[in-house]
Design a protein around this nucleic acid. Sequence first.
DNA 1: AAGTCATTTCAATAATTTCTGAAATAGCAT
DNA 2: ATGCTATTTCAGAAATTATTGAAATGACTT
Lengths: 194, 194
Amino acid sequence: MNLSSLQQEFVLHFGEMGSRWGINRTVGQIYAVLFLSDVPLNAEQIVDRLGFSRSNVSMGLKELQAWNLVRLKHLPDDRRDYFTTPEDLWEIVRILVAERKKREIDPTLSKLRELEMRTVDSEADRHAHDRLSELRELIELLTGWYDDMNRLETDRLKQLLALGSKLQKFAGADILSLVGRRTAKDKTPAGKEA
Amino acid sequence: MNLSSLQQEFVLHFGEMGSRWGINRTVGQIYAVLFLSDVPLNAEQIVDRLGFSRSNVSMGLKELQAWNLVRLKHLPDDRRDYFTTPEDLWEIVRILVAERKKREIDPTLSKLRELEMRTVDSEADRHAHDRLSELRELIELLTGWYDDMNRLETDRLKQLLALGSKLQKFAGADILSLVGRRTAKDKTPAGKEA
DNA sequence: AAGTCATTTCAATAATTTCTGAAATAGCAT
DNA sequence: ATGCTATTTCAGAAATTATTGAAATGACTT
């Protein structure tokens, strides 16, 4: 590995963590190298830094592109592809959440809704049905909240997060009335509004 | 698979999703069966429903216990172990987040803090150092917010989530002053307070 | 259109992870 | 202690996933 010890340690850690999130170690390491780099890198440079085969790096980059996690750049008079990660870390978080939502949450919601349509015969299925229904509601509340937060500019979002639960004393009464009460059930389903 | 089609479909879907989150398919399916069941189940019953080997189920249950995701029960005059998932879905969410935080976020924070201590020589490392620092700050803001929310009772939490970003108009001025302004930087680091 | 360079594909191999059956352990009752 | 039942361990087999080198593709230049 052709990296400073600082970078190498982070890259290894990140690869390790990635593999606990269903991202393969190699892809995680490629991402970490790009994340730390002050300049865009091409595939050959990544091969050099990490010591993987050229084809492995190519596949890793393809996967990162499919996840929208890297941006492709071009340098003048150089036809190789260069890659970077977004400057803004909040942008990275937004992309990550959006992609996981798209791939995991949305299909799960569809499946839950589909299963809720089924008519139920047995006692056991009655209970199972109720559990699925509860789960769907919970996911809807969370994704609704996420959609809401995702609409905020980053600075507002940071403010709100930093405030944490400070506002909760008010949420019960004062502010709710100021704002116009609106509970989860009133909300348009996730992804259905402009 | 000895399950109603309703249950079977959910179990398969859940196993699939689990495997995208670094949880193995089998373990995901075992969890799903327990999640849907209206009564506690013992290992043999899970073997019957899913058709895995007894030892595989034993290992899966052990892993779920290590994650705190199942509860062990005992029935009178029966010395077999019976398992359930918490009734309350919010309890499940809390456990999941707490465990992932413990296993992934906390070690990453330590690693980032450790790397930030390093003295930096090259230009490239200067930039890498800055990126790590930004990342640490972002994670601290998010975990701080999480700690805050986690302290709320479930009903308050649901209220706040349902409210979403509604409060943000106020967060800028009015309420901040009422509440006493407190930004992320003032916060005690995650896990350091009572 | 031949040559060069960059990237991708793909079949094979390697490595890792999951799963199993058999054996070991553990607790309890007689 | 012996037998009975429940659970766990563990080494090997099976399955899955990651990685590679070689060949194919594509795109640009001369």
